[in-house]
Computed example of a mutant assay.
Amino acid sequence: MSAEWLYEAGIGEERAILVAHGQILSARIEWGDPVRPGLVAPARLVKRLHDAKRGIVRLEDGTDAFIDHLPRDATEGVTLTVRVVRAAIAEKGRTKLPVTRPAPGEAPAPAPTLREEIEATGATLRALPVTSTAMAVNGWDDLVEQALTGEIPFAGGSIIISPTPAMTLIDIDGTLPPLKLSLEAVPAIADALHRLDIGGSIGIDFPSLADKKDRQHVDKALADSLIDWTGERTAMNGFGFVHLVARLERPSLVARFARHRSAAAARILLRAAERVADPGALLLCAHPAVLDAIRPEWEAELARRTGRTVRRKPDAALSLIGGYAQAIPQ
């Protein structure tokens, strides 16, 4: 069976997984942010930075963004047509602005939906009703748990993925001897880069290996596992650190869930609510922060899709991801 994308148009979220032989190879989530890669729009240059080739532009909706490759004759106040090449990236205490580039001659256009973006590559995509079990059968729930916790187990240990302002850090933990632990971790790391949509600057902290031959052994194993990954990689240094750099267009699943836990939990709850089969009104029981993250238009869409009355029950004793949906008498 060749690989195919399974796609769901959820409430407040598009989600897709690339699957083959019952395994998730890659995954994507979009939360409908209007300023994301592919958007072409007019923007006013509000500031030219010291290096002259970069600046800050303001889109018509008031969003500020960086711009690269400014033409020499662009002066502050001029309106340019720009294309968004990287989405905003939320970090602890701040948000990195979106990144744009001049797009002279291009017509303004909204960013493509996740479905449009995948279909534009020529890949096979199968759109599913939200009641389908296909994504769950192929491991969607495990993937969400890994994105929420950042932890992925493997034989003899686990990797811990932590988004930081500087880079995504991958730590390796386990009880195996250092060389064996490192080699066992390599396939889990390679899979995680694709499955959790991780790009940008990535640091891998392997156990320290004193013997240069052991470090070279791990380097080769990592290179072989990343054969279909596009980016640059350093050799392991004497402290076990490897640096990867790949194109960054959007936050990874781990970064998205870590920085917006209530919003992520709200979308998970809405997906569960759409799948309730028993008759009756829908009761959403969750931590107050999760219920607060459900926008009125999302709740209205849930009512429209299911044909049910939607009720809420806040419970501060529940964890953010401990919410549930159930049918109750009307």
Rank of each mutant, 00 (worst) to 15 (best):
T63S: 09
T168M: 13
L114K: 01
R83E: 15
A74M: 06
L70N: 02
Q146E: 15
V85I: 15
L125V: 15
V85G: 06
V144A: 12
R115N: 05
P98C: 03
E145L: 10
T100I: 10
P104S: 07
A87C: 08
L49N: 12
I152L: 14
V144N: 01
I152D: 00
V85R: 08
L59D: 09
A90E: 07
G139R: 00
V137W: 04
G93P: 09
R86K: 15
R86T: 06
A123F: 01
I172F: 09
G157Y: 06
M135H: 04
P177G: 01
R101M: 12
V78R: 11
T133I: 10
G156W: 12
A123S: 12
V84P: 10
E60A: 14
P163L: 07
D142E: 15
G77K: 06
A147F: 11
R94Q: 09
I161H: 04
P98L: 01
T149K: 03
A103E: 02
P163M: 07
D141Y: 10
T100A: 14
P71K: 10
P102I: 04
T149E: 05
T63D: 02
G150N: 02
R115P: 00
V82M: 12
S158Y: 06
G122N: 03
D173Y: 08
L59S: 11
E60P: 00
T63R: 09
L176N: 07
D68W: 13
I160G: 03
V82G: 08
L169D: 08
F154L: 10
V85Y: 06
A147N: 04
L70C: 13
T79V: 15
P153K: 07
R72T: 09
P98D: 06
E145R: 13
V85T: 15
L179M: 08
K180W: 00
K96S: 08
A52L: 14
D173N: 11
G174C: 03
T121E: 02
T121Q: 00
L97K: 10
P110D: 05
K96D: 04
V144P: 00
G105L: 05
P98I: 01
D173L: 07
P178V: 06
L143E: 03
T79C: 01
T79S: 13
P98A: 04
T63C: 13
D171V: 02
V78N: 04
L169Q: 10
N138K: 06
A74I: 08
I89P: 02
T95G: 00
L49C: 07
P178G: 07
P112R: 10
V78T: 14
T164Y: 10
E60Y: 01
V144W: 13
V82S: 11
G150R: 02
A107R: 14
P104V: 01
L125A: 09
S132R: 09
I56E: 05
S132T: 05
E91M: 15
D141W: 03
A123D: 14
L148C: 02
R58I: 12
D171P: 01
L59H: 11
F154I: 11
